[in-house]
């Protein structure tokens, strides 16, 4: 099968899997929301004509208006278009704190009067990035090292395995705290830490698969044919070895989102005043019985995102696994 039709083939397989499709669509919508967050929820107008100037404040704010009061400007402007949710995720308004969901605040407000929906929309950026960055790092590092170790064996395997063991010995919190202590804390650094601590599982899995597969006949055949090592690794062994790694990776993305919320709960996640789902959730912990919207919506969002990633991952795995695309063989 050539490359193009292979891709189509995979794509069609996923499309047929309704669960995976739902998951995929959800992720796409979420990504769009995250990308356009500034345009969807902001106290600045999308477009405004003010003092004879045409401005697009959501995208660029000129120097002299950096600290301006936007409500004022909107009122004095000749024409303006506001985002659908006209609240900033960080705009404090103590007179409106802990309001239940209402037409003016669809998901209510938090303890500082900030609109929950706006915070959720901006918070989606963090949640999406956490998964991608963390798992991206762990995939790249883990698969590469695992493949090297599994394929070449010998002293390289020994060395890499010891390295994996050393990394495994470091408790996660220790590293998080070390990062918080040494560097100025920040959510991106935490994401990197999550990535750097979770590659070991993937590495060991990959290594195990490679060890198993490298002695298979078709690999021996490929070697006899004189294929270069890297071609063997990446074109022949890897696609066959990737299945358990993908399962691991999808859980990884999902768990990274959950880890972010746990870390924020313990005080190590996002910095104020950044919005993140975990942050709203940990506020909600305090207000459980009086402000039910505070724990509910971020919890729901985390929940749905994790679910979506997992379903999509499952579908992807089912589609990609060459062994499962075999014809006929069923129970």
């Amino acid at each position: 099968m050539n490359k193009k039709s292979y891709r189509h083939f995979i794509f069609r397989k996923i499309l047929h899997n309704r669960l995976a499709l739902t998951g995929g669509i959800f992720i796409i919508i979420l990504s769009l929301i995250a990308f356009f967050a500034s345009l969807i929820a902001n106290d600045k107008p999308i477009l405004v004509i003010y003092q004879n100037r045409l401005l697009l404040p959501c995208i660029y704010v000129p120097q002299d208006l950096k600290q301006a009061d936007w409500l004022n400007i909107i009122n004095k402007s000749d024409f303006s278009i506001s985002p659908p949710i006209p609240y900033s995720p960080i705009g404090v308004n103590l007179n409106e704190c802990l309001l239940a969901p209402s037409p003016s605040h669809w998901l209510g407000t938090d303890e500082n009067g900030r609109d929950v929906l706006a915070r959720m929309i901006h918070g989606s950026r963090i949640s999406l990035q956490v998964g991608i960055i963390a798992v991206g790092i762990s995939l790249i590092v883990g698969v590469y090292l695992g493949a090297m170790a599994g394929y070449y064996g010998g002293w390289l395997d020994s060395l890499i395995s010891r390295f994996i063991e050393i990394m495994m010995c470091f408790p996660f919190f220790f590293l998080v705290l070390a990062v918080m202590a040494f560097l100025e804390p920040g959510i991106y650094k935490i994401m990197i830490v999550i990535g750097l601590t979770s590659w070991t599982g993937i590495a060991r899995l990959t290594r195990g698969e490679f060890i198993k597969i490298r002695n298979e006949e078709y690999i021996l055949a490929a070697r006899c044919l004189g294929l270069s090592n890297s071609k063997i690794i990446f074109r022949h062994i890897l696609p066959n070895a990737i299945a358990p790694v993908l399962v691991s990776a999808t859980f990884g993305i999902a768990s990274a989102v959950l880890v972010e919320s746990s870390l924020t709960f313990l005080g190590f996640g996002v910095q104020i005043p950044t919005a993140s789902w975990g942050e709203i959730l940990s506020q909600g912990h305090k207000y459980l019985t009086i402000a039910w919207w505070l724990p509910l919506f971020p919890g729901l969002a985390i929940f749905l995102t994790v679910l979506a990633y997992n379903l999509l991952g499952e579908g992807l795995r089912d589609a990609l696994d060459p062994r499962l695309t075999g014809s006929g063989d069923s129970w």
Binding site: M180, P185, G267, I272, P273
Partner: peptide, 9 residues
């Protein structure tokens, strides 16, 4: 500019 730190730090 807020700087949140862990207690010991």
């Amino acid at each position: 500019e807020p700087q949140q730190m862990e207690w010991a730090t």
